[in-house]
Design a protein around this nucleic acid. Sequence first.
RNA 1: GGGAGUGUAGCUCAGUUGGCAGAGCAACGGACUUUUAAUCCGCAGGUCGUGGGUUCGAGCCCCACCGCUCCCA
Length: 490
Amino acid sequence: MDDRRAKLASLEAAGGEPWPYRAEPTAHVADVRAAHGDLEAGAETDSHYVLAGRLMLKRGQGKLMFGELTDRSGALQLFVSKAEIGDDGFAVFDSLDLGDWIEVSGTAMQTRKGELSLKVSKARLLAKCIRPLPEKFHGLVDEEQRRGRRYLDLVANRDSLDVFVTRSKAVSAVRRFLEDKGFLEVETPVLQPLYGGAAARPFVTHHNELDQDLYLRIATELYLKRLIVGGLERVFEIGPNFRNEGVSFKHNPEFTMLEWYQAYADYGDTMDLFEELIPHVAQTVTGGTTIEHAELGEIHLAAPWKRITLRDAILADSTREGGVAVDIDTATEDEMRAALHTAGYDPKGDTTRGKLIDALLTKFVEPFIVQPTFLTDYPVELSPFARPHPDNPKVVQRFEAFVAGMEIANAFSEINDPAMQYDRFMAQGDARAAGDDEAEQLDADYIQALEYGMPPTGGLGLGIDRFVMLLTGRASIRDVILFPARRSKS
RNA sequence: GGGAGUGUAGCUCAGUUGGCAGAGCAACGGACUUUUAAUCCGCAGGUCGUGGGUUCGAGCCCCACCGCUCCCA
């Protein structure tokens, strides 16, 4: 560090500008590659470019130097010859350190060994990197640093940068898809006087002036449906939700969720739209609909996806790990507990029938789903906002989408009968009294909104982070969140 | 919450039975006009996560705490 600071000082002393205000690159590295990728070895061109980026490698060769410049689009070799750049220019380049931001001008060429390069005629420092970068070959490996100082991870590990470029493109593709289908993007409150729309514990905060406790939202559901009451017909929101729970490879306390609501649609329409969205985004972002998963092999996202009722899935899969077959339509709670016990899981915290069914799903079904699958027709106890199925009053018109062992989406035909919704809230209140601290609390204002009339509506929530994990083949949610939650050092 | 692993130079990692703190890369000085993690010669770099204990002597053994990773509830 001291050596690099000294270089800065000597540059200033020599009248140089160590921290220029602007640069004027005319192209990205990828543009040069696209235009000259097929040059023959030893060929030179008159095509002139100005590139800007970080100097990541430097190889001295006497009166010749090679460097590697990276920008967001990729890396390109710099060919720096004393004959071309002059004695002064050569000295300037020689004084650069790995990690320095630079601007270089020159022409495209192919070296004798066939490496596309920029033959540099001018180079200047844009900003000094005073601290040495992580090692050039191994990159930054330490997970604590990769996530705590993500900027270093992005500099040192190209594949990590690519993950976040993919994430951005995926979110953009989702937006365009929904806008093309006539959806409006809206923003609803993050700070809410009541929380609801999901089974989760909230973060609590306080508004001083109003002297009122507020919750960070766990879902956007109830506000978005108020907008359907208001007549916006098709709305969506992409933004952070907050759930006060543990962290795991698929949980971060702050995560990004897409929710959409569509008037005049039911859960079947919603399933069709979702089945169209996911392959479309995969195609747009990765150029295909097949994902190569490191552990699970090929995952095919193209429609149609497998569709199976939750009852049939549990009936078929509950014999895994030595369990006994469970039919959730007829099984008693004790039988469900027994099945979970035989699989080595103690359901002592699962106090309700709904929670037990959820445990059966989590234990026996979810981890084993690899290819995209819709589980449909959930028990009413688990789904306080979903409409009953007309053919079977024990279940509701709801589905969850699973892929690669994870739930990525949850959707249903929305309850629009205010009396029915009120009864569901009451049942949730009973569950809470029985010890379920994730049960919904009564939202009287939401009931009132429904009393003004909500058209038949289908809604869906998609976990954006998990979807990006799928698209990028990452096994941990912390690899697709730029700054994941971590314990701060005191 | 429980279990296992891990923490040593800026980065990636060795460190034997408890006996002088090591390598590669980066940095610094030098050689080199076609390198590809360039190579070669030279030089320098440390509160061994933190605190305590055992010992003539601790990176190594013991205890507590902190961070991180994985598995389990």
